[in-house]
Write a protein that binds this DNA or RNA. Sequence first.
DNA 1: AATTCCACTCAACAACGTGTTGAGTGGTGT
DNA 2: ACACCACTCAACACGTTGTTGAGTGGAATT
Lengths: 195, 195
Amino acid sequence: MTAIYDEMNEKTKEKIQNNFLQLLKEKNFMKVSVQDISIATNINRGTFYLHYQDKYDLLDQMEESLLTGLEMHLERLQPDILLVEAEQGNISMHAVEVFRYIQMNTAYFQVFLGDNNRVGFHKRLKLFFVDHFIEKMIKNKDFFKGLAVPQDYLSSFATSAFLGLIEQWLDNDLAESPSEMAEMYIQIIFFIRNL
Amino acid sequence: MTAIYDEMNEKTKEKIQNNFLQLLKEKNFMKVSVQDISIATNINRGTFYLHYQDKYDLLDQMEESLLTGLEMHLERLQPDILLVEAEQGNISMHAVEVFRYIQMNTAYFQVFLGDNNRVGFHKRLKLFFVDHFIEKMIKNKDFFKGLAVPQDYLSSFATSAFLGLIEQWLDNDLAESPSEMAEMYIQIIFFIRNL
DNA sequence: AATTCCACTCAACAACGTGTTGAGTGGTGT
DNA sequence: ACACCACTCAACACGTTGTTGAGTGGAATT
């Protein structure tokens, strides 16, 4: 049975990731050394290299699993409901789930989107939203019809706007509930629409 | 007369900045060493430290001067015209100047907002827009009246959306003209309004 | 013409971080 | 008893960092 070894492996990786996250709250990613990580984790520096190629690999894996987590979280929703919702003034279902997931992983999002560590996660998250979220909304023939703006610009505009809301929420230490945030998102989008 | 020495000083700093910019096109900021910079600039490594504390300081100064350059560029416009413009469906004046300035400094913006070097400039530029641009629009009693969303969220939303447009423009290698971009911005904003 | 000033060069320094290696420890499963 | 495996430990060569002290050559000062 190799399960126990796998478990040890996982626990060590978890410890590394947790302590790395703590360090990222204090320091810039660039200034966190593998030394720092191994000391904080009470682990030999060599052990770190048994699990990760380097600290970039560590960061990459953490970002990746955060995004696939979000993907799985969203998969539970029917994929094409959004369009219908949108026409009913009810985009909220998707949005509220995104905000909920962020709430479940506050520390990660605050660090990865924070002032210090804006290494690549911002762009990555943006791409994610374009693929999983905004594209569906924009490709809806009715929702944005009558607007002569290229689709890539519209995507980037809408996605960044949504991200802006999220960033502000994180800056405010999640003062609002996920539902309130979704509500806000809808209000802004439809304010615009119904003025 | 000390002017000549000042000039030497400036020319060296310029050379450093130019070569640093080239290096940033090829490599991640973290992977550009002071060695690399001094070699590319044909300068002794010690000389670099006569001008900058470290490479962070260099990046910081370049970002700073890019932003103050934008500030100066915008100052030539009357500060309160925007509000009037907005009500006339004519925000473009400010927007077009921003796009024009970006066009004048394409390389800098592409590098500082590019995938590799999203160190802190994104947030910095966002703050700039909030201070100089969006706040004026949002504080306009009429423009966003009837929308029950906290001002900080509205700021973040609108600014990020604007930045999204810029990022897409840079990704597209400035395929559109500044005026076209401004036009696009207006269209999106007012589409929304007049639908 | 002699001297001071200044940007810059050069070589060397200790300190630190990196990624890798080979030998060793101690629990786990067979 | 044996092999297995995650992990430790110490040492390695190498690159980067920021600093220092001595020196060079052209420009300004007297």
